[in-house]
């Protein structure tokens, strides 16, 4: 029987201490376009408090990070069918949750820097537009949106 071996140095590692600086990014809410009507666009603004997508970021006070959203331009459906999604400049913003922080709009296709100047939490919101064709094929259409946080 073959047994995987564990490097000896791994066994000597000490337990991780509990209190260390940490970062997190969490997807809180999906982008909800509501009812779709064939042939008619549905738009969600990033400022929409219910329908916009939302991520939450936490980092130590003073931390500077880079945010990048990788968003699709179409959803993939049955038998190769696609459904266009339009997410453009101004469809995203990042804002600290502390008093005095203002929304910083950015192009989801490019990087944005964010400083945790007054607190440890910030939110990213994302809107967009979806346009089902009049003859859109029935079925389920999906794709992936990625929020990347880089700590310098």
């Amino acid at each position: 029987m073959h047994r995987a071996t564990i490097p000896a140095t791994l066994l000597s590692l000490i337990a991780a201490p509990a209190a260390v600086a940490q970062v997190s990014v969490t997807g809180i809410r999906d982008l909800a376009f509501g009812f779709l009507t064939l042939g008619i666009s549905s738009t969600v603004l990033p400022s929409d408090p219910v329908k916009s997508a939302q991520w939450r970021i936490t980092a130590p006070v003073g931390q500077r990070i880079q945010i990048r959203l990788t968003v699709p331009n179409q959803l993939l459906g049955p038998s190769g069918a696609t459904l266009p999604v339009s997410i453009n400049n101004g469809d995203a913003f990042v804002q600290g949750t502390w008093t005095g922080s203002v929304p910083n709009s950015f192009n989801p296709g490019s990087n944005v820097n964010f400083n945790f100047t007054g607190g440890t939490q910030a939110i990213i919101r994302l809107g967009g537009q979806i346009t089902p064709a009049a003859n859109q094929r029935p079925g389920t259409y999906t794709n992936t949106a990625v929020c990347t946080i880089t700590v310098f």
Binding site: V23, S24, V25, T26, G27, D30, L31, A32, F33, G34, F35, L36, T37, L38, S42, A53, W55, P72, L75, L83, I130, P132, Q136, P138, G139, T140, Y141, T142, N143, T144, A145, V146, C147, T148, I149, T150, V151
Partner: peptide, 24 residues
């Protein structure tokens, strides 16, 4: 995660998988 409602007459549902990536 389903991200949208549905076209109730045509049976269209849309969804988006959310991924998060942290680079340290």
């Amino acid at each position: 995660v389903p991200v949208s409602g549905a076209d109730t007459s045509q049976g269209i549902t849309v969804g988006l998988n959310l991924e998060v990536r942290t680079i340290i």
